[in-house]
Every structure is written in C-alpha cells, then in structure tokens.
Computed example of a mutant assay.
Amino acid sequence: MKRLAGLRPVPADWYYRGVLTARSGAAGHLQLRYLGTAGFVLSDARRTVVLDPYLSRPGAMRSLAARLIPDTALIRRVIPHADEVLIGHAHHDHILDAPDLCLQTGARLIGSRSTMMVGHAAGLPDRQLRETAGNEDIACGDWSVHGLPSRHGRLMGRIPFPGDITAPPPWPPRMRHLRHGLVLNWIVRTGGLTVAHIDSADFINEQLDGHRCDVLCLCAIGRKARPHYVRDAVQRLRPRWVVPCHWDTMLTPLHAEPDQIPGVDLPGFMEEIRQAGAEPLLTPMLGDLYFPCQY
C-alpha cells in the first residue's frame, strides 16, 4: 500500500556515517538529535533546547478524522529533559507534543501568539509561555534564541490551514484547529556554535540577511516548493553543515522505518547543498550528531 501511494524508504547508505566529532556525551560538544519531521533536540552540558517536537505521529486516518492526542509516555521516554521548546509554526506536526513536553519538564514554550493559544488550551501556566513576534533576542540561560519572521511554503499550490489561532483551540485538537499563525525561523546561539532552523518550505530572504550560522537545519520539502531554496538559504546564512529535515512522511510511528514524503529527492537535495558550498549531514530518525563548540 505504501508503495502504491508513492512512499519510498530511505536507503541506509544515504545516511551520514563518518565520525563528525566525538562520542556521545563528550564534553565541549553540542549534541543535535533528529526527531523526525522538523524536530530537533539541541543540548550541551548546560542547556537543552527542543525545536518543533512531534513524536506521537498518529496515522493518516486518525490525523484526518479524530482528535489528536499526544503520546505522553513516548514523549517522556524520548525527551526526558528540556529547558525551552521553540515552535516554528502552529501546525499539528510542529506543535502537538510541545505543551505536553513543557508540562512534563517545566520548559518554557516560546513562539507566536498562535503558539501561546495552543499552550493555554493545553493548560500551561503563564510562567511557561513566552510570546515573540520575532526580531528579538531571548535569553535562555547562557544561550539565546532569535526568531526571524518567515512564511509557510505552498503544498500543491496551497498553504494548508492558513491564518492565526486567536483563542485557545479545543484540546485535544483536530488537525483543522491548528492553523500555522506567524511562522518563525530560529537562530539558536549556544555560545560556541550557532544553529539555524528553517522548518517550512519558504522563507523571507531579507530576514535571513545579516545572520550567520554554523549548522543549518533545512526543510527538504522546500527544494520542490520554492525556486533557489537551497542556494538562497546557504548563501545568506553561510553554514558549514546542513542537516536535512522534514523529509519523512510524519505518519509512520517514530520507531518504524521512515518513508520519504512523495516528491522529496534526498540525493538531489544533498547534492544541491554541496554545490552551494556546505556539507550535508543526513541523520537517521533519533540519530545524533556531535559538533565541536569551537572549530
């Protein structure tokens, strides 16, 4: 059935297999863990920042026809600790699990007004909510984060579930309740390295100008949705490494074999990254990369 729908598994030999920096837990390194979809955990000995966590991943029928219920036990197992949770936009595959993660860990939820409405709906107290319209530095311990206003990419010519969430939605929500709201790209400054996160298939060139990063987490769908997507992102942010994200279908269980979103060409995406002057690092689901804090 998956093959009839055009879904293809990712061949194992596409994944990055070199030793990038260090063994797990080594001091002086930034750990990046890929959660699937647009999700990442960034951590060092001082701080843990989570971006767009989406672990529950209900199947297609439940996503379309039922209320979406976070898998609390799975969230606890995979992300036992967090200090901040950053949301790029409020679609279900970016925000559904974030309030539950914050309730479990005490982390702050940081994002747009729509993100705050979702946090209120899920029962987060005000002290764990930090709204931003972007273009401001937000201190996160010794780290800081900076949201860059952006826009959501078009899929098959349309933006899915556009608009803002202006009041707390029903909780648990249905997919249609979670409109994207303000879209934010994130710049995360860890003290040693800077990580940029682009979680959708479009961005605003001028918002990226003047910013630089060492590691760029880049949405693979964008290569098909927007002309010069890879070139523009890499030339403006000048990363040394690019980690593809949002290439898997988001519908398979977290620990199952992932499938590529139809139309995503990972080899072509990685080749474009190389041609733009950066090194692509395709990471398995729940795979870890370790970057030296100084290089």
Rank of each mutant, 00 (worst) to 15 (best):
E84R: 11
L182D: 12
T194C: 08
I110W: 00
L68Q: 07
A278W: 08
A12R: 14
R238P: 02
I110S: 03
Y229D: 01
A256L: 04
R46F: 05
I198D: 05
S150H: 02
A196L: 09
D248G: 02
G163E: 13
D142P: 09
R189G: 09
L55A: 02
Q104N: 07
L129T: 02
G210I: 10
G111A: 11
P172L: 10
L281D: 00
S200G: 14
P149A: 07
A90K: 06
P262E: 10
G28Q: 05
R23A: 15
W171N: 07
D100M: 15
W143D: 11
L55G: 00
D199M: 12
G134S: 05
I95T: 07
G134Y: 05
R176P: 07
W143H: 03
H29M: 03
D288P: 07
D44H: 10
A220T: 01
T249C: 11
F161I: 10
G277W: 03
A98L: 12
H177I: 02
P267L: 11
C245Q: 15
W241S: 00
T21N: 14
G18K: 06
V242I: 06
E257H: 03
A27N: 02
A26I: 04
I87G: 08
Y15R: 06
R174D: 04
R154N: 10
V50S: 06
A27M: 11
D209P: 03
Y229G: 03
L42T: 14
C245V: 14
H89E: 14
E84A: 15
P267M: 11
G268H: 12
G210F: 01
R130H: 12
S200T: 15
A82Q: 02
D71Q: 00
Q294T: 11
D71H: 01
A278R: 03
R130A: 10
Y15N: 06
R274S: 09
H211I: 05
V195H: 04
L216W: 04
M175K: 15
P70Y: 00
L281H: 00
G181Y: 05
H197P: 08
R179G: 01
A12E: 15
R47F: 04
A45R: 14
D126W: 08
E279W: 01
A225L: 14
D83C: 04
L266A: 02
C213W: 11
L129E: 11
E206I: 13
P160C: 12
H92D: 10
A233H: 09
I110Y: 03
H152K: 10
R179E: 06
T115E: 02
K224I: 13
G191I: 13
L96I: 04
N205L: 13
I204H: 03
P292Q: 08
V215I: 15
W143L: 07
D232V: 03
R176L: 13
A225D: 05
R236F: 04
L155K: 13
R226G: 04
D232I: 06
A220V: 02
S43M: 07
A225T: 06
L124Y: 04
P258W: 10
V243A: 00
P11D: 09
E131P: 01
V85A: 02
H91E: 06
T72G: 10
I165E: 09
D209G: 06
A22P: 11
C140V: 12
R231G: 09
A90D: 06
D83S: 04
W247V: 07
P173M: 06
T72Q: 13
A90M: 05
R77F: 00
D164L: 11
G6I: 07
